[in-house]
Amino acid sequence: MSEPLQVIVDPAAAGTPASAPPAAVALLRERHGDGVRALMENRGQFRVLVERGQAAEAIRFLRDDPRLRFTFLVDVTAIDFHPATPRFRVTWVLRSYHTKETLVLQADVPEDDPSVPSMTHLFPGADWLERECFDMFGIRFTGHPDLRRILLPDVFPGHPLRKDYPMAGIMTDQEWAEHIVSRAQREEGHD
């Protein structure tokens, strides 16, 4: 068992009474050691930053351990810290109906290789959530059975929730119409 991790308290929660990390954090450290990179807190809600290669294993452990039973994957999303590096932080929100705790797991993902392991083999609900995250950020969930766009059309250029994607889009309406038409023609073999 290594040294207890320093809890980094959010500036937004500075000065609030410190709460003890949930049992899940100690158990995770016991199993993954240095794979658990940091521990952050915002008024009793803890975020565990793990090595991305170990995220799947950590989440499987959290789900299956009889003391924890984080059987509910609430959300999968990412945060873009552009232009900082590593650029993305993929975020899983897990909940246990057993201990009634909510735990946030995060993993840093660099821009040149934006991939994390998929959780679809653990939670069937991860399917759509990961597809949306891929759609919006271009994060590749390796092992996902059918990773394609879900909300945006297949022909959409780029990933709009990235910070370098402009609010107005990267195409004018005219360009967008031409883009769709030319693509449709290509598919039908008119080109």
Binding site: D10, A12, A13, R47, V74, D75, T77, V93, V104
Partner: peptide, 25 residues
């Protein structure tokens, strides 16, 4: 809002309407 991150879920008519807010100050 000061820098911080938090997930909050509200019990809405259709289910849990959740917000993961990452504030950067």
């Amino acid at each position: 809002l000061a820098t911080g991150e938090r997930y909050f879920g509200a019990e809405n008519p259709k289910g849990e309407l959740g917000f993961y807010v990452a504030s950067d100050g």
